[in-house]
Every structure is written in structure tokens, then in C-alpha cells.
Amino acid sequence: TTVHLNGVTYTFPNPEEARKFVEKLAKTLNLKVEVHNGTYHIE
């Protein structure tokens, strides 16, 4: 599972880890999250 954040790409072997990371980040920084083909894009 891949996460794109400010031009940096993070790869998680575990989709659940990626989801938790994204949710925590989005909540902390009040960001918008979009998912395209299983890839998270955070703005």
C-alpha cells in the first residue's frame, strides 16, 4: 500500500498499517485524503 504525502512516497507492506497511518496523519494535520487505486494521496 502506497501513501503519497507532499511529494514523498511511503510504502507499507500491510494495508492496515497504511490506513492507520493515514487516518492518524489526516486527523492530526486536518488534511484531505483521497484514495486512487489503493494509493492514498494526502493533501
Rank of each mutant, 00 (worst) to 15 (best):
T11A: 09
A26C: 15
P15V: 08
L25G: 00
H36F: 09
E17R: 11
N14I: 05
T9R: 13
K20Q: 10
R19G: 04
N6S: 08
H41A: 02
Y40L: 09
T2G: 07
L5P: 00
E43C: 15
I42D: 02
L5A: 04
V8L: 10
H4N: 10
F21W: 13
T11E: 08
H36S: 06
G38M: 03
V33F: 13
H41R: 04
I42G: 03
G38D: 05
T1K: 08
G38V: 02
P15G: 09
A26S: 11
P13I: 11
V8A: 09
V8I: 11
V33T: 01
L5N: 02
K27T: 08
T2P: 07
Y40H: 03
T11Q: 11
G38C: 14
T11V: 11
G7T: 05
E16I: 10
V35Y: 14
T2E: 12
K27E: 12
F12Q: 00
N37M: 04
V3G: 00
Y10L: 13
H41M: 08
G7P: 01
H41G: 02
K27M: 13
H4E: 07
P13R: 13
K24M: 14
A18H: 01
E17P: 01
K20D: 07
E17L: 14
H36N: 06
E23T: 08
V35E: 05
T2M: 14
T28A: 09
N30L: 07
K24S: 11
V3H: 01
F12C: 13
T1C: 15
N30W: 05
N6C: 15
A26M: 14
Y40I: 13
N37P: 02
R19D: 04
Y40C: 12
N37E: 07
H36G: 03
Y10K: 03
L31K: 02
K24I: 13
E43D: 07
K20A: 11
T9S: 10
N37S: 04
G38R: 01
E34C: 15
T11I: 12
E34R: 12
T39A: 14
K32Y: 05
G38P: 01
T11C: 15
T9V: 14
E43N: 10
P15E: 09
L29S: 06
L29P: 06
G38Q: 03
T39G: 10
V22G: 01
N37T: 02
T2V: 12
H36P: 01
L29I: 06
T2W: 12
K32F: 05
N6M: 13
H36W: 09
T28D: 11
H41Q: 05
N6G: 08
Y10W: 11
L25A: 03
E16Q: 10
A18P: 00
T39H: 15
L25W: 08
N14Q: 05
T9N: 06
P13A: 12
T1M: 08
V22C: 14
K20Y: 08
L31D: 01
V22H: 01
G7A: 05
E23P: 00
K24E: 13
V35H: 04
I42Q: 02
H4M: 13
K24C: 15
Y10C: 14
T11W: 10
H41S: 04
K20R: 12
T1G: 10
K27Q: 12
N6H: 09
E16V: 10
K27D: 06
N6D: 09
L29F: 10
T39D: 14
L29N: 07
L25F: 04
G38N: 05
L5C: 14
T39Y: 06
V33L: 05
I42K: 02
G7D: 06
A18W: 03
T1A: 10
E16S: 09
L5E: 02
V22K: 01
L31A: 09
F12P: 00
L25C: 13
N30C: 15
I42V: 11
H36T: 06
G38A: 03
E23M: 11
Y10Q: 01
N30I: 07
V8N: 08
A26L: 13
E17G: 08
E23N: 07
H4C: 15
H4D: 05
V35W: 12
T11S: 10
E43Q: 12
Y40A: 03
E34I: 14
T1F: 06
I42F: 08
E43G: 08
L31Q: 02
A18S: 02
I42A: 04
T28N: 11
F21P: 00
E17V: 11
E43K: 11
Y40T: 04
K32V: 07
V3K: 00
N14Y: 06
Y10H: 05
N30Y: 06
L5R: 02
P13V: 10
L31R: 02
Y40W: 13
Y10I: 12
